[in-house]
């Protein structure tokens, strides 16, 4: 049984069909990245999974519990950080976490234990009795995460968990997610593609309320034009090198000259599908007597794939 299973989830707001039949599964140990342009329906799907919104049609199960018929059981298995991380600003960190622990059904000493553990996990020790409103954005975000982890839920749903954080804080949140991923099913939404590569084991690209791709980040990158491309830097000025020579190599589809402000030659060689061209290119350069300063194989550009898939979508339907 999958921890999360959605079946043709659909949500209509007035005249707008925000989510148009979305089905996917998330297993234990997976971190699923939800990618998509703003307004794609990411948050709406998450809000349905967490029983905030009722689907217009279709349904989902969390740990086997239906979100419509067995909503309370589904909620108990889920930790959720909504978009923009709402928390009760007038409470102290500890007061807020104790409130959530009570709402999660803990009593007496167990509340203290749960709260202490969450405080420790999210490095909140220094701000235990501070009013949440007065905390920095990074700390507030950690309070939001701590709230979702109090009951050690098997399912975690995080809507843009690193939005608005500085690079160090982003790194912290991502490593926290990675640490927890082994025994949980985690869904995160984001529009930062590096985040997908950093934490996700699978990515779903959603646009206009539809799933367009459901693959591992590596598989997605293979679709990039730049996948397997070689960036070559030669220690010679423009005049002495003939880029066309590389075009005659068997695996090369295209050669592009990159302008960089030095008197070296920067070339990008694009391979034909599936071809590995780095060795051949260096071989050719050596043969011609051109000194290779740097050669780097690209794994592909997720941004490019994302743009490609989400803008091409009009033609598909």
């Amino acid at each position: 049984m999958s921890m999360i299973e959605t079946n043709k989830l659909r949500k209509v707001f007035g005249p707008i069909e925000a989510v148009k039949g979305v089905s996917f599964r998330v297993e234990k140990g997976e971190v699923l990245g939800f990618l998509g342009p703003n307004g794609a329906g990411k948050s709406t799907v998450m809000r349905m999974l967490t029983c905030f919104l009722t689907p217009t049609s279709g349904t989902a199960t969390i740990g086997g519990h239906d979100i419509l018929n067995d909503s309370m059981a589904a909620r108990r298995l889920t930790g959720y950080v909504p978009e923009s991380n709402p928390v009760y600003g007038d409470m102290t960190t500890i007061g807020f976490l104790r409130f959530i622990a009570e709402m999660r059904g803990y009593h007496g000493k167990e509340i203290d234990e749960r709260v202490d553990r969450a405080v420790e996990m999210c490095w909140l020790g220094d701000v235990r009795s501070q009013i949440i409103e007065t905390l920095s954005k990074g700390f507030r975000r950690r309070v939001g995460l701590a709230q979702s982890l109090l009951h050690d839920p098997p399912v975690l749903i995080l809507d843009e968990p690193t939005d608005g954080l500085d690079p160090n804080q982003k790194h912290e949140v991502r490593s926290l997610i990675r640490r927890m991923s082994a025994d949980k099913s985690i869904v995160i939404s984001t529009h930062i593609l590096e985040e997908v590569e950093a934490v996700c084991s699978r990515a779903i690209i959603i646009s206009n309320g539809r799933i367009l791709e459901d693959k591992t980040p590596t598989d997605l990158k293979i679709r990039s034009r730049r996948h397997g491309a070689v960036n070559l830097v030669l220690a010679h000025g423009d005049g002495s090198i003939d880029p066309a020579a590389f075009r005659n190599l068997a695996g090369v589809r295209e050669v592009e000259k990159v302008t960089a402000g030095d008197n070296r030659t920067h070339l990008t060689l694009f391979p034909k599908p599936g071809a590995a061209i780095c060795g051949d290119a260096i071989g050719l350069a050596v043969e011609k007597g051109w000194q290779v300063v740097d050669a780097r194989v690209e794994s592909g550009d997720l941004n490019e794939v994302f743009r490609d898939i989400t803008t091409r979508e009009g033609e598909r339907t």
């Binding site: 959720y80 909504p82 928390v87 009760y88």
Partner: peptide, 13 residues
């Protein structure tokens, strides 16, 4: 403040 989303996704009717 958006906390309605937090509150109403807790196991509470």
């Amino acid at each position: 403040s958006g906390t309605i989303e937090l509150l109403l996704t807790l196991p509470v009717s």
